[in-house]
């Protein structure tokens, strides 16, 4: 109970406690009223994965690196006749790109390994479903998630210049 402290009077702690609660009462509450007010999420939030289909080359890196095998990719080869070329070129065409979010553990490895920037994090998180099978998002739905992808952060002015910039500067200096 009221034990006299080193430099204070008995009951000092009790009064301090009252002061803290009073101060908390008059300062703003931290509650976010979620369904009424959308939360302001940081740009790097890991909410959902978006697919930019035009960048995908069906290299399968993401599907192979995925720790819980939740990315399903099907594709076929298509021959492209380029006029003037020695022989026809072959191109991979994406048939199916599904991510099963009931398995996904949001590690982000697929996004890291993608060499062509076809996968992105988006902060949207509200895609709960009544049926677990509906958590399998097909490529159309993954493409829709691209709308929520925030713009890349501006370059840190104190940081090193990006590789592209420095090579461009080198080339320009050489010219």
């Amino acid at each position: 109970m009221t034990t006299p402290e080193k430099n204070g009077f008995p009951g000092k702690g009790l009064i301090k406690g009252l002061g803290i609660t009073l101060k908390t009462m008059v300062s703003r509450a931290g509650t976010q009223q979620y369904p009424d007010v959308e939360p302001e999420l940081p740009a790097r939030s890991r909410g959902v994965i978006g697919l930019m289909e035009s960048n995908c080359t069906v290299c399968m890196l993401c599907a192979r690196e995925c720790p819980d095998w939740c990315i399903y990719i099907d594709s076929h080869k298509e021959t492209v006749e380029v006029p003037g070329a020695a022989r026809a070129r072959q191109r991979n065409v994406l048939d199916r790109f599904d991510i099963d979010f009931s398995l996904c553990m949001y590690c982000g490895i697929c996004i890291e390994v993608c060499p062509f920037d076809a996968l992105f994090w988006a902060p949207d998180f509200a895609y709960a479903e009544g049926d677990i099978r509906n958590l399998l998002h097909d490529r159309g739905r993954l493409g829709e998630h691209m709308a929520g992808v925030p713009a890349p952060p501006p370059h840190d002015p104190n940081g090193e210049p990006s590789k592209e910039e420095s090579t461009a500067a080198k080339k320009g200096g050489a010219r």
Binding site: T21, L22, T24, M25, V26, A29, G30, T31, Q33
Partner: peptide
């Protein structure tokens, strides 16, 4: 309401 605000919450809304 008072208890909620003293705990940094909003209470019934």
């Amino acid at each position: 309401k008072v208890m909620a605000h003293m705990q940094g919450r909003l209470g019934p809304m």
